[in-house]
Design a protein around this nucleic acid. Structure first.
Length: 435
RNA sequence: GUGGAAGUAGCUCAGUCGGUUAGAGCACCAGAUUGUGGAUCUGGGGGUCGGGGGUUCGAGUCCCCUCUUCCACCCCA
């Protein structure tokens, strides 16, 4: 009986695994050089852990199960609750600042579509315990540091940055009642996807004052922090709004100083779904805008408290592998050559009587650290050289009549085709393996 | 969960009006070539035509159901 792969999953054959490793190796390297340390948690948690912030609707989007002890569990759809749980458990013992990264495998029981599968990997970086906007800027910098390192330029991607705090203050300032805010965020978040009229209609459905709606709509069109004064001239009189605006300016100044200003743009329409975020928020999109967000993040100062811990500020980012891979492929940044197998040596045995000697040399090369391969077939040298080429060997050692008569090995450099005779003991002893 | 499109070899696809034993390219294996690789030529293996049911003398082809994939919606932590 033939059993198919499960909907929304991927099989990682060696070529796909090479791509996956390329992504995660990059994530890891950039995390480490930005001062983050790696952590991970269990692949499942109590189901209720995911209901804390998102309610019961989320249960339908989760793979959940009941174990034999009657515990309601769920495969993790995100790692932030696990992060919150782990940090809360040791909050007083962890050295500050807490800068952690992870690359968890996550599952969500959603319908697969472009850039979204039911099983995926997501790079997460979080800074916990720092309320300074320096941390927000660092998270954004680290994100761009990675994206830049894989070859994406400011003409390929754009980091859209806003502030939840600023948005809330301005909305209230222009007359949106405080209790309408949570209902408004999901609508504002959809602005880019809705036709203009439908968006206005939805906003008007929540906000009664037409004057407030007009101001709100004007604010959503703002694409630089400096323009806000044009729409809200008396912003300086509002301490909260002014403070939030100052933070935004600071973040942009920092990102400019760190050399990634080209990638960054203020965009009031970046809201990020639910009432999760409390300060700076951002998303990275492809410049053309035909893919879903490459990543998203922001400040969430209440989350640890909501998970039963002390009130500790935090800011972070999550980046999935699916959209990223589509984007990199689209821009020609994933090429065959990047993933070609590379071996240092191929040992060809041209005389089956010398097979034990060939295997001894293979073993010694491997022990010395040289990636070494050989063929199970003896004698047919043409086949073996073909195999050497296929595995990407830089050098081929031929063991044949020269060995039988003079204890010499033929060392062939594959790229140039040039070959030379080397003395077996010299070659192996001086470990002058050309790698 | 809703809607649209598509499933033929490992991959990309052809397959006429329903008619004999389902094809091509690429990939893979082998030979040409028993001491010299990437090229070329020749040959070979590989198919539940996604699955099930129906119509028919006869179904890859027509009808129904189902599964999967892709695209859009809902949602997006």
């Amino acid at each position: 009986m033939k059993i198919p792969p499960v909907k929304g999953t991927r099989d990682f054959y060696p070529p796909q695994m090479a791509v996956r490793n390329f992504l995660s190796d990059g994530w890891k390297a950039v995390s480490l050089r930005n001062g983050f340390v790696e952590y991970d948690g269990p692949i499942f948690e109590y189901l209720r852990m995911y209901q804390v912030k998102s309610g019961d609707e989320i249960v339908e989007q989760l793979f959940h199960l009941t174990d034999r002890g009657g515990r309601e569990l769920a495969i993790r759809p995100e790692i932030t609750p696990t992060l919150a749980r782990m940090i809360n458990q040791q909050i007083n013992a962890l050295p500050r600042p807490i800068k952690w990264f992870s690359m968890p495998r996550l599952c969500r029981a959603e319908r697969p579509q472009k850039g979204r599968l039911r099983e995926f990997f997501q790079w997460n970086i979080d800074i916990v315990g720092v309320d300074d906007v320096l941390a927000d800027a660092e998270v954004i910098f680290c994100t761009l540091d990675y994206l830049r390192s894989v070859g994406l330029s400011s003409s390929d991607i754009i980091a859209k940055i806003s502030s939840r705090k600023l948005l809330a203050a301005l909305l209230e300032h222009v007359g949106v009642p405080h209790d309408k805010l949570d209902g408004l965020y999901p609508i504002l978040d959809k602005k880019a996807k809705l036709p203009g009229e439908a968006f206005v209609e939805m906003v008007a459905g929540v906000v009664e004052s037409s004057q407030a709606v007009d101001k709100l709509l004007a604010l959503m069109e703002v694409h630089s922090a400096g323009q806000i004064k044009d729409i809200v001239p008396d912003i300086a009189a509002n301490d909260i709004a002014q403070a939030a605006l100052d933070e935004v300016h600071q973040v942009f100044d920092l990102l400019e100083a760190m050399g990634v200003g080209d990638y960054c743009r203020f965009d009031m329409s970046i809201v990020r779904g639910l009432a999760y975020y409390t300060g700076i928020v951002f998303e990275v999109h492809d410049a053309v805008g035909d893919l879903r967000a490459v990543c998203g993040g922001g400040r969430y100062d209440n989350l640890l408290r909501d998970f039963g811990g002390p009130s500790v500020p935090a800011t972070g980012m999550g980046m999935g592998d699916c959209v990223l891979e589509i984007l990199l492929r689209d821009r020609g940044l994933l090429t065959e050559g990047m993933f070609k197998r590379k071996m240092d040596y191929f040992v060809a045995c041209a005389d089956s009587n010398l097979r034990p000697k060939a295997m001894e040399i293979v073993a010694r090369l491997r022990q010395s650290g040289a990636a070494t391969e050989f063929s199970y077939k003896s004698a047919n040298l043409g086949k073996q050289l073909k195999a050497a080429d296929a595995c990407g060997a830089r050098h081929c050692l031929i063991i044949g009549q020269e060995y039988s008569t003079d204890k010499k090995l033929v060392l062939k450099e594959m790229a140039s085709g040039t070959q030379s005779l080397v003395n077996e003991s010299n070659f192996l002893e001086k470990s002058a393996f050309i790698q």
